[in-house]
Design a protein around this nucleic acid. Structure first.
Length: 366
DNA sequence: AAGGCGTGGGC
DNA sequence: TGCCCAAGCCT
């Protein structure tokens, strides 16, 4: 890894670079609902900072914006969130993905409310003990909400640092060096502003594709730019290819319009969310998919497939639909204890992930 | 330590 | 179209 000279260079050139960046942040930084203006004397509410950071994990600002305000209105304080049923939190999170975040968010709220008197720990180490708070989020909350001299490193900051110092070591191997460089650049008096400044630069100027180097406040300091590598850095290790899995889902519609849904196991893929009962999803279609139907009915196969891509596999689902009698008995294989009939008008607010909304739309023929 | 874990947008 | 990508965490 080496590159001690990079860290020393960052430490000596650091103050000048940080000054240019913070000046840019004052002019061009984004105004976001979980932020307070740059250079303000007070620090933002740790609960709001934490919520925004968790929502933003692997999720775009655009996707988070409409959800953050809704969530905060529903549960304005950490104690409110801690008192909510997990199912309500999952329903509010539906569509945002990575549902372990919502499960951990709830567990974290309970821990803060019950074990920390309703106040978040004020240090990076203390924050990192809490569920769903890892290296990045602990450092971000410590810096932004508590003005601690922490240096969070997210994907934006990785990109900015690898370009600024022309780091050719591929990710994730380069992470320790990136962390050291970011820490050496961080001004001790404004760690929160500086972290958010780097993230804004990464999001608006130092973008993954076609970076706007012409508008960059530190182009003159950028080794990646000087070497003509800004656009191709960071180098990344190759990722595994995604297999395709197949299955068949069964949309059961009762006479009164209610739809049969089932709660998934509490952990793992879509853990704790609701699903449309289906065969297992495997490398090939089940030879007799109807054996997996949740009840006996006149099943009709819908034309076409529902396709969905998860992080680590593609999924193609055949859809069968049937209108079923009011008192139809669920098959034992359907695990009736986890099943429930949900009225059509309640679907919008149910804990249904995007995949299952696609399945319902297809199966209900809308 | 590498792989599981969502989703929607952009090219 | 298919792939890449977004303020990562957990095991």
């Amino acid at each position: 890894m080496a590159a001690i000279q990079d860290v020393e260079a960052a430490a000596s050139a650091g103050p000048a670079i940080a000054e240019k960046l913070l000046a840019w942040y004052g002019r061009e930084g984004r105004s976001l609902p979980w932020r307070i203006p740059p250079g303000a004397d007070e620090t933002p509410d740790p609960y709001k900072v934490w919520l925004s950071e968790v929502m933003l994990q692997q999720t775009t600002v655009k996707a988070v914006l409409p959800r953050y305000g809704r969530f905060l209105r529903r549960w304005p304080r950490v104690e409110d969130l801690a008192a909510a049923p997990l199912g309500d939190v999952l329903a509010e999170w539906a569509g945002l993905g990575y549902y372990a975040r919502a499960r951990n968010l709830h567990a974290c709220a309970v821990a803060v409310a019950e074990e920390h008197g309703g106040r978040f720990p004020a240090t990076e180490a203390g924050l990192k003990q809490l569920p769903g708070i890892g290296d990045y989020t602990a450092a971000a909350i410590a810096a932004i909400a508590f003005n601690e001299p922490a240096a969070p490193v997210d994907g934006n900051i990785e990109r900015v640092m690898t370009r600024l110092f022309a780091l050719k070591t591929p990710l994730p191997e380069a992470k320790p060096e990136i962390k050291a460089l970011a820490a050496s650049l961080t001004p001790k008096d404004r760690p929160g502003d500086f972290a958010q400044c780097l993230m804004d630069l990464g999001a608006q100027i130092c973008t993954p594709k076609r970076p706007a180097c012409g508008l960059c406040p530190i182009r003159a300091d950028c080794a990646g730019y000087a070497e003509g590598l800004a656009e191709v850095l960071p180098y990344k290790a190759a990722k595994a290819e995604r297999p395709t899995r197949l299955g068949t889902a069964f949309v059961s519609v009762r006479q009164d319009g209610a739809v049969l849904l089932r709660e998934r196991p509490p952990k793992g893929l879509l853990g704790g969310m609701l699903e449309v009962p289906s065969t297992p999803w495997e490398g090939q279609q089940a030879s007799a998919p109807l054996d997996f139907a949740p009840l006996e009915a006149d099943w009709r196969k819908k034309v076409g497939l529902v396709e969905h891509t998860f992080t680590h596999f593609h999924l193609k689902l055949e859809i069968y639909a049937a209108e079923v009698a009011e008192g139809a008995a669920l098959s034992v294989a359907a695990d009736p204890g986890r099943c429930r009939w949900v009225a059509r008008r309640d679907l919008a607010d149910a804990a249904l992930p995007s995949l299952m909304r696609k399945v319902l739309r297809h199966g209900l023929g809308e």
